[in-house]
């Protein structure tokens, strides 16, 4: 049996809102040691989502036996919208479940609402992603990266990211013209999350689809900072930290013909 209680429903709501536009169907793997893990690839096979909600993200978590919950995220999102952000949220599943029970408890009122979501058998490819050294890593405020991704998409379908020791440059060239935004590393002592940190083994220039970057920044509400790891001619990793766990996106780059 699985029983996971979140202190606030908002965490799972934000996670599902962050990924449901990229992947519609996915398997939630549940285990006592790892909590909930998900790997899912978008239909175009350009963007991969790797989610880990550790048991530490829950107020209470028990999973007697490893379980796979096949979920339609659009349907789960509809059910999660029934509860308030501050409610306790408990998800419950039997050992061979055909449905997931979702329970909201209002902390002030005596109101308990229960919903049952039908589960599905989902056959999905899993990619083997080894931990690897990256050429560079940038940590920056999540809202700032979101603004850049959204603004630059209005100029071009592609966004080039150029990292050097001294700066990170976002470059877009489109039909109406071009634009660039340059950020320099700095440390904000009073608000550490406002800092911009660059770690560099070697400079990198990579180009990504603006559409996919805009899918990724839907996770902005989850974390105050985003870490972007880049390697020449390889997919990029965008990581949003959860209170205990992470939401990672792997995005395949574009290459010049």
């Amino acid at each position: 049996m699985l029983e996971g209680k979140f202190e606030e429903a908002s965490l799972l709501k934000k996670v599902i809102e962050s990924i449901k536009d990229s992947v519609k169907l996915c398997n939630f793997n549940c285990s006592q040691s790892k909590g909930i893990t998900v790997q899912a690839i978008d239909d175009s096979r350009v963007l991969l989502i790797a989610l880990k909600i550790d048991s530490g993200s829950f107020q209470e978590f028990r999973c007697d036996r490893d379980l796979v919950l096949g979920l339609d995220l659009e349907s789960l999102s509809k059910i999660l919208k029934q509860g308030n952000n501050e409610d306790y949220l408990t998800i419950i599943a039997e050992d061979s479940p055909d449905s997931l029970l979702v329970v909201f408890e209002d902390k002030k009122k005596d109101r308990i609402s229960e919903f049952s979501l039908k589960l599905m058998d989902i056959d999905s490819d899993v990619l083997t992603i080894d931990d690897m050294e990256h050429d560079c890593s940038i940590t920056m405020p999540a809202y700032e990266f979101a603004k850049i991704a959204r603004d630059m998409k209005t100029l071009s379908e592609s966004l080039q990211i150029i990292i050097t020791k001294d700066s990170v440059k976002f470059n877009a060239e489109g039909q109406i013209g071009s634009g660039s935004i340059i950020l320099k590393p700095h440390t904000d002592m009073e608000k550490p999350d406002e800092s911009i940190k660059i770690e560099l083994n070697q400079p990198v220039v990579l180009t990504f689809g603006a559409k996919y970057l805009n899918d990724i920044v839907k996770a902005t509400a989850l974390s105050s900072t985003v870490t972007i790891k880049l390697t020449d001619k390889a997919p990029a990793l965008f990581e949003y930290r959860l209170p205990s766990g992470y939401l990672r996106y792997y995005l395949a780059p574009k290459f010049d013909d």
Partner: peptide, 14 residues
């Protein structure tokens, strides 16, 4: 125009 790559060009399908 740059060409969009596919993730399976970089990672193996398990």
């Amino acid at each position: 125009t740059p060409i969009q790559n596919d993730l399976t060009e970089f990672y193996n399908v398990a």
